[in-house]
Design a protein around this nucleic acid. Structure first.
Lengths: 321, 321
DNA sequence: CTGTTAGCGCATTCAA
DNA sequence: TTGAATGCGCTAACAG
């Protein structure tokens, strides 16, 4: 059984293909209810699904929305976010598809252009030149990374690690072949909060995700002997920092306070239990879906049903602060 | 500047569209070198990229290979695998795209059919009925999950946790809304290895990824008082088991031995350092690419350059066995 | 041997 | 409501 075409539907319904197309695309106000019904039934009976190729051909672009995911560890947070985003954009007839942005960005834009997507959601992975290329190619480009949200997360980090009083402030970034996407914003947020409290901007340490490397990276800071307050890029980095503290014989949270971001399961399973920040992605998503709808001049998606009362960020106190 | 079409190329090269098509699709043996060159130059100059829509229209299916990723935590292992897979299949003109399979599979197949992909790589997420649906729709369906590899991982788990001598064997599975995809095979492998050693099949415990839940799940087994050997679905579950052991006051590895799978960074950062199994995905990938090529009757991809000497699985001893 | 003509596949939209 | 044209690439059949 091969796929039914709009011609099949038209034949079965006893109308022309143009009529089918009009009705199926919301331009059917001028047709009688009876015609609507005939078409609806033919569609049903034939299990008709419009060919994306045909549609893409005439529209000049496909129905795809490519979510360009950074090459970095991502937990269920992002996965949930994508899931919900798919549901959102489905309401405006688009399909979300994920591309993992490898460490070598060369070729990524080529690949994207080959896809002829309607839009690209970029989590800060593309260099400016590539972004321009896409835009001039008529692809709607949406910034999925929220500067604001990450800066706020950075502020919360400062608040958390300074809960036991003022100490030397540090930001632990990810040292890795992967790009550190949200890092700069989180650091900026930490620094801003520090400034508000009359403190100097935190030093920045790149921490590798292995015990020996982490110990080496933090050695100079531990050497000073003063108590430290370390805000971390995410929970994984925080765990690396805890490992380094153990290696150097520092007690947590007495001599070193540590906080991460993401509220990962492991962070809550280890001892001491990690102080962390939970990011609720649904806010971000509402915005993204709306941006998409605007950019594509599609009808705006129905407003999110989820109550907007839950805060986007929440501090989850643990045993490391 | 709008996208160039094959007609533009033909015009610039001073040949017909058919000639362009023939040459660009390897059917150009009968054309002179000069013609080849003219076309090549026109393509170059116009930055011509064949329209995926046009191609899909005539072929009946798109160039997409959809990797259906299970709704479960996945680390960089899988990400690397996808990355390499993309490179592999690019050589046969296909593009890999990822779909996160949400916890609600309903609608997933519909979405897949809407994409009209050339192939779907399924990591054991689709129920049999859906697989049939896809197959009859002409989509090449490839099993990406390797039963063999996961069973071998299970065997290695048994070996690892029994290193300190025979004890009560246990398999800790993931308890979660997400599907536990590799679990059954890993359990089977553990049981097989146990049988080879004349031991009974291990009990199966579903362990949630939070401290309290994990403690409750393992309580009955700890209560027996005998030493335990616990093979875990992955590193995360192993960390949950370690947490439960702490809660119940059991020492690791004296009273409880634990091993995970994945060799995640956090597993190596915590104390005690986790015994784990590293899975090298490149083997699996070579097979997958070949399967794809066969299924699509495309020219086989060039044999992988990576030396096939590295073992697919490697036991990384830690401090938990 | 070298290359072209003509028509297909599918949905959309303008003009009638 | 509909016929006809459009967008793009592929290929069987055919001509020089």
């Amino acid at each position: 059984m091969t796929e039914a075409t709009s011609a099949d539907v038209a034949r079965l319904a006893g109308v022309s293909r143009a009529t089918v197309s009009h009705i199926l695309n919301g331009r059917g106000q001028r047709f009688t209810a009876a015609t609507h019904e005939k078409v609806r039934r033919a569609v049903e009976e034939l299990h008709y699904r419009p060919s994306p190729a045909g549609r893409a051909l005439v529209r000049g672009r496909s129905d795809l929305v490519v979510a360009l995911i950074p090459y970095t560890t991502f937990g269920t947070n992002l996965q949930d976010a994508i899931d919900r985003l798919s549901a959102e954009v489905a309401t405006i007839g688009l399909k979300v598809v994920v591309r993992l942005a490898g460490p070598d960005l060369t070729g990524t834009v080529e690949a994207l252009l080959d896809l002829r997507p309607a839009a690209v959601l970029d989590w800060d992975t593309l260099p400016a030149a590539d972004r321009d290329t896409l835009r001039t190619a008529g692809v709607a480009l949406i910034d999925a990374a929220s500067t604001r949200l990450n800066q706020d997360a950075g502020r919360l980090l400062t608040v958390a690690v300074l809960a036991r009083g003022p100490r030397t402030l540090l930001y632990a970034a990810l040292l890795d072949t992967r790009s550190d996407i949200f890092g700069p914003d989180r650091y900026a947020g930490m620094a801003a909060e520090a400034a508000d409290r009359g403190l100097p901007a935190p030093d920045l340490v790149a921490v590798p995700l292995d015990p020996a490397g982490a110990a080496v990276a933090l050695q100079p800071h531990f050497a000073a002997g003063t108590p430290l307050a370390i805000g971390c890029y995410n929970d994984e980095v925080a765990i690396a920092v805890l490992s380094a503290a153990r290696t150097h014989g520092r007690t947590v949270p007495a001599e070193v306070t540590v906080a991460g971001v993401d509220h990962t399961p492991v962070g809550q399973l280890i001892t001491p239990r990690l102080t962390t920040i939970r990011v609720d992605s649904s806010h971000l998503l509402g915005t993204t879906a709306r941006l998409l709808a605007d950019a594509l001049q599609a009808p705006a998606p129905s407003p999110p049903v989820t109550a907007p009362t839950q805060p986007a960020l929440r501090l989850i106190p643990g045993e490391t602060t």
